[in-house]
């Protein structure tokens, strides 16, 4: 198991918290909570060792497309998910937070 941490610039804190996914084979759990204004902190706990650069690349790409993303604390508990599944779960989590805020 490996723990990897990243930080990205962000806007105002996210408006709520959500959980998606499970720590099951090929899947991951994402816990999204409001972060400190201006900063998104990412913590990845993964069962696959030695993949820090791939995680970095994934988040770099994701946040490059989201210049106005809210500040979040993201915790990912990963059990061997593919980058596609990771991305899908992250988008799902951010979409759910938006929906919550809209209600």
């Amino acid at each position: 198991m490996e723990t990897i941490k990243f930080e990205y610039p962000a806007k105002q804190p996210a408006s709520g918290r959500v959980l998606v996914g499970v720590v099951g084979s090929g899947d991951l759990e994402v816990l999204l909570e409001p972060g400190e204004s201006g900063k998104t902190r990412v913590t990845v706990n993964t069962s696959v060792d030695g993949a820090a650069s791939q995680w970095r690349a994934l988040f770099d790409r994701l946040f490059a497309t989201l210049p106005n993303a809210a500040a979040m604390n993201l915790e990912l508990n990963d059990f061997g998910a593919t980058p596609g599944v990771v991305r899908m779960r992250l988008e799902q989590a951010m979409e759910l937070v938006k929906q919550q805020a809209g209600k």
Binding site: M1, V23, E29, E75, N77
Partner: peptide, 10 residues
């Protein structure tokens, strides 16, 4: 034991 946990322990 180096095993990834789930936030609600399942």
């Amino acid at each position: 034991q180096g095993i990834v946990t789930q936030a609600d322990d399942g």
